[in-house]
């Protein structure tokens, strides 16, 4: 028989793990203890944990800052369960019996294999280059003035800077929380997200121009944007933090919905508040992208009576 004692951080992360075979384990700062801790709020001889046939017992050795179990200060020997947490001074300990059950292994699975490809330097570089290409293409197709190289370089530079800063921030978070940066992975993720966003903008324009149905197309696009942003944030959290699955979903969805709706704010205002000018579908596209048939003016006029109802 033996006892496992973990020194854990406030966040729950395990800092040290000790296996102790003694029946009675003494804990304190003095070097004659079985478990020696360096926290200066702990007494030289602070507490004792004993393992008997009836279970695990703890007792305080008249320490200055005391031994706390479930928020109560322990005055006399007290039985605890395997896996319970104790507080000595400012140090958190978790105590386990050796027969304590552990969770099943998490399967590496296909999802993680796909995600691992994101960490390839080639994937990161190619997606960043492709994004830069898209940015210049967009700048070129919407330019009605003389060609100016400087403007293209600026456009690409701004987007690349945003992408790199995003990857760096998550990398730093990852370095602190998980001791791993995953910078290349984060860079691939945000680049791919931006590429998809560009495509989505194009699909949005195309749908809007062809259906001329603002509400329908906008609602569909907003939902897609939320899903996409939610995935990006979920994956970034997955690589850079230790949050549980539920927390990851919660945070990513919350941030995605808030950001997208916030960016829609002026649109919503324009569509609900009075304005002297009508709000029309502005974006028009070249003939090659027009796929719907046209009507005669008589048919159009017949359908127009709706705008005169009061």
């Amino acid at each position: 028989m033996a006892i496992i004692i973990e020194v854990v951080a406030v966040s729950g992360k395990v800092l040290e793990r000790h296996r102790l075979d003694q029946k009675e384990i003494t804990i304190g700062r003095a070097y004659d203890n079985h478990l020696i801790l360096s926290d200066n709020t702990i007494d030289a001889h602070h507490a004792v944990i004993s393992e008997t046939d009836d279970g695990i017992f703890i007792n305080d050795l008249n320490s200055i800052n005391g031994l706390r179990y479930k928020h109560d200060r322990i005055k006399e020997s007290k039985q605890i369960n395997s896996g319970d947490e104790l507080l000595l001074g400012k140090t958190h300990l978790r105590v386990f019996a050796t027969n304590h059950a552990v969770a099943e292994a998490v399967s590496i699975g296909r999802q993680n294999q796909i995600l691992n490809t994101f960490s390839q330097p080639s994937v990161a570089i190619i997606s960043l280059l492709f994004l830069s290409l898209l940015v210049s293409l967009e700048a070129w197709s919407s330019s009605i003035a003389e060609f100016k190289l400087r403007e293209y370089i600026e456009a690409v530079f701004v987007i690349d800077a945003i992408v790199i800063i995003y990857a760096l921030i998550w990398g730093i978070v990852g370095k602190i929380v998980k001791h791993a940066m995953y910078f290349k992975t984060q860079l691939s993720l945000i680049s791919l997200y931006m590429i998809l966003s560009y495509f989505m903008q194009f699909i949005y324009d195309l749908l809007l121009f062809n259906t001329l149905n603002y509400i329908f197309v906008t609602v569909v696009t907003v939902i897609l944007e939320i899903v996409l942003l939610n995935y990006l944030l979920w994956l970034s959290l997955e690589f850079s933090t230790n949050l549980s699955n539920i927390k990851k979903w919660f945070f990513s969805l919350l941030v995605a919905i808030s950001l997208i709706l916030l960016s829609m704010y002026t649109e919503i205002i324009n569509h609900t508040e009075f304005s002297v000018s009508p709000s029309l579908i502005q974006k028009i596209l070249p003939p090659i992208l027009r796929m719907v048939p046209s009507k005669t003016i008589e048919e159009f006029i017949e359908e127009s009576s709706d705008i005169f109802t009061h």
Partner: peptide, 29 residues
């Protein structure tokens, strides 16, 4: 507020250029 109806309308049948216009027709009472 202005209410609008938008659509694609082709020019009169005798039109040579096969013109098509994106039109918006709006009214406020």
């Amino acid at each position: 507020k202005f209410k609008c109806h938008e659509g694609f309308v082709k020019a009169a049948p005798n039109d040579q250029a096969l013109a098509v216009s994106k039109v918006a027709f709006c009214a406020r009472e």
